[in-house]
């Protein structure tokens, strides 16, 4: 490692939340009102679904509508509370949940007697610090929406193509497209890797464990696909 990268890492190592990787903080901003709105919309949809539910005759006292009403109530209350929270403290930054089971940072800091100097400096994700002078409100824009949209499109394309093209071709295409989207610079090598990955899965799960993977247009061409 050169001196330059070390210095960059040192700079990046400013006190922040003890998260594995991706510990960038998002300023949730007013965009989160959409989330609150979505929660309320879900509550509304569930409420109408519950109200119009066809309940079979002679069902015992707390029927099938009882629990849904509780959930509708919960969603309505937390939706309003979330909206109020966003409006009252719009600039409050939240640690971005990189790990699936995110925990409250505050709680962990208390439990671990973490004082924000020694520990937090040592666990420093590579991309922690926003560049100086960057507007913290601007965080949302840094999410690369284009790549996300293209990834979704690739996955959707896979779902469309699977039964027609068969597993090997469509899975290889998905693998290749995602590797490319995620910054691979060697598309030809990727073709080879993609075909190998798709074929190994076909062999292991299709031929080995007997999972019915569609053969598609390769039906009959390669004997071990079916």
């Amino acid at each position: 490692m050169t001196g330059g990268t070390t210095a960059a890492r040192e700079r990046a190592a400013q006190p922040q939340a003890p998260r594995p990787q991706q510990a960038r903080r998002w300023s949730t901003g007013r965009g989160e009102l959409w989330v609150a709105g979505g929660v309320l919309a879900l509550a509304g949809a569930l409420a109408s679904g519950t109200a119009t539910m066809e309940v079979p005759d002679g069902v015992a006292a707390p029927g099938p509508q009882f629990f849904p009403w509780l959930v509708v109530g919960l969603l309505a209350v937390v939706g309003v509370a979330l909206g109020a929270q966003v409006l009252l403290q719009a600039r409050r930054a939240h640690a971005d949940g990189g790990a699936p089971a995110t925990m409250s940072n505050d709680l962990l800091e208390d439990l671990g007697a973490i004082d924000g100097t020694s520990e937090l400096r040592i666990v420093s994700p590579a991309d922690a610090a926003p560049a100086p002078g960057e507007d913290p409100e601007d965080d949302g824009a840094r999410l690369d929406v284009r790549t996300i949209a293209l990834t979704v499109a690739a996955l959707a394309g896979f779902a469309l193509a699977l039964t027609w093209l068969g597993w090997i071709l469509s899975a290889a295409a998905l693998f290749w497209a995602l590797a490319r989207l995620f910054g691979s610079g060697r598309p030809l090598l990727d073709v080879g890797v993609a075909v190998i990955v798709a074929s190994v899965i076909q062999l292991a799960f299709g031929a080995g464990l007997g999972l019915p993977l569609p053969a598609g247009i390769l039906e009959g061409v390669v004997p071990w696909t079916s």
Binding site: Q22, D127, R142, L143, D144, T147, T151, L181, F182, G183
Partner: peptide, 10 residues
């Protein structure tokens, strides 16, 4: 998808 949103900048 989450990684897709940041892999180019990370």
């Amino acid at each position: 998808l989450h990684v897709a949103g940041r892999i180019r900048t990370a």
